[in-house]
Nucleic acid binder design. Structure first.
Lengths: 123, 123
DNA sequence: TGACTGTACTAAGACATATAATACAATGAG
DNA sequence: CTCATTGTATTATATGTCTTAGTACAGTCA
């Protein structure tokens, strides 16, 4: 389900956060479905529950999940994702596109890559 | 020339690296031109020379700069930028586009944003 | 020669990360 | 109600990274 690279320089809680976000985005965890409990996921990944909690807090700040004490944590609806996340993604997109252009890649080629994802989505 | 946010969680050497990379990409520092010396830039930014050196090492690994002992550090030519950087950027691009699509943004809109940069470039 | 350059190394402190060990309130099945 | 599970909070500790400080050495060039 999730994989970790303990050698990676990135903090574990970021890897968990990005991994879960990806599972939600790809639909592997449908909106409204329950995420693994803090203790369960910590056991599966063989890490501390506090680290999982930190990843869940981050996902909740972004709007990708919400937690209910006594019940569990759940995947949120796309509509509930905060606008700050959208703005941040666009900012990152601009930076990457600008550097790719500097490296000699044509903007048509970059746009085509985005289009390919769009058509993939509608299958 | 460069600005730092000491409150930011990001390490200073990463801010310096990204800032210089941006100056090179945008053409503010043309290929072949000399970058500020380790000690000079450290003095201007009021930080330690070791921190600047670390940023320069990173830029050299990416291919955006090269250093010559006794002479200085210089902006590299785009041709010398490693292919690994290109692949890494495309990987990041895919991840961001996929998340933007999940958030409901149309791929035409994303492609148009890339096109806007492309036309900006040709002015 | 002397002033500059990049580079290397050690030591110390500040800070983030991760673990460990508890504790508490809310939930829901029995 | 009882009890296991849930999220959440707290404190303490160990480790690694980041940054500064200080020093040193070799190459470049006026």
């Amino acid at each position: 389900m999730l994989s970790l690279n303990l050698r990676d320089s990135r903090p574990i809680y970021e890897q968990v956060r990005d991994g879960l976000r990806r599972l939600i985005i790809t639909g592997a965890i449908p909106p409204g479905d329950k995420l693994p409990s803090v203790r369960t996921l910590a056991g599966q990944l063989a890490i501390n529950p506090n680290t999982i909690q930190r990843a869940y807090e981050a996902l909740e700040r972004e709007g990708y999940a919400y937690s209910v004490p006594g019940k569990g944590s759940f995947a949120a609806l796309p509509q509930d994702v905060t606008d700050k996340r959208r703005v941040e993604l666009l900012r990152q997109l601009d930076t990457i596109v600008q550097e790719l252009l500097y490296l000699g890649m044509a903007w048509e080629e970059i746009a085509a890559r985005c289009a390919a994802f769009g058509k993939e989505e509608s299958k």
